[in-house]
Amino acid sequence: MPDARAVPFRGGGFRPRGNRWAALILFAAILVLVEWGLRGGWISPLTLPLPSAVLATFGELWRTGALVDHMVPSLSRLAVGAVLGAGLGIAVGVAIGLFGLVRAGLIPLVAAIFPIPKIALLPLFVIWFGIGEASKWALIAFGTFTPTVVATYGAVDNVDRGLIRMGQSFGLRWWSIVSKIVLPGAMPGILSGLRVSLAIAIILLVAAEMLGAEYGIGAYILTAGSLYDLERLFAGVTILSILGVLVSAVIGWLEKRVLRWRT
């Protein structure tokens, strides 16, 4: 055939694909760069600690058992607060999705509460719940509550109406329709809402520990900050980051298990 040309391929791109090593390599590269910069003197030691020194602090934390002393109260505060806030949030979100009156009453209220920086209410929580654990739980619970509510009622709204109608047409009980059709159908949306809520819970954990906490990651970071002890500060911050990655991994694992029915 004269004049035959191959058709050029032009369908590529726009499909970002993962690479399991990319994140690790980038992370390591940043650390090496900082270490090199500090030792070489072209980064001022006032601005950043030596990554190797942070690692050493970490090791010391581990050896002296201080790591456990700080982690246990923090994790229990996070767990209690997040379970309270997310649990209540899911319940209220489902109620908003199901009942017209609840919806009409609560959506504006939630919208009004959502943008309040919860940290600003900290003194109020201390008066309501005292200086002990309760005020810290309340702060974390309050902060996780609103985003969970919003994600949950959105997810309930998005459940396929055809499936609900099917349930009604077979005469299923109200509670069966809710537990077997509405809740599983809303689960993807609820879980992706939890990702956001739990990250907020970690942020609020540090804020909660600003007040009257002797032990806890937040207390540790704040003490280090006020002493301008950069190594300790960064060791604490690293723990928070690891916590965030862990929480995200747990939700990813949950999604894989619970949402096996999606592709």
Binding site: G162, L163, M166, S169, F170, G171, L259
Partner: peptide, 18 residues
């Protein structure tokens, strides 16, 4: 008979998680 009037829907209406 458990449900006298029973539908078969155009879009099947199957629960994807079951």
């Amino acid at each position: 008979c458990l449900n006298p009037l029973t539908y078969v829907f155009q879009d099947f209406a199957l629960l994807p998680w079951r």
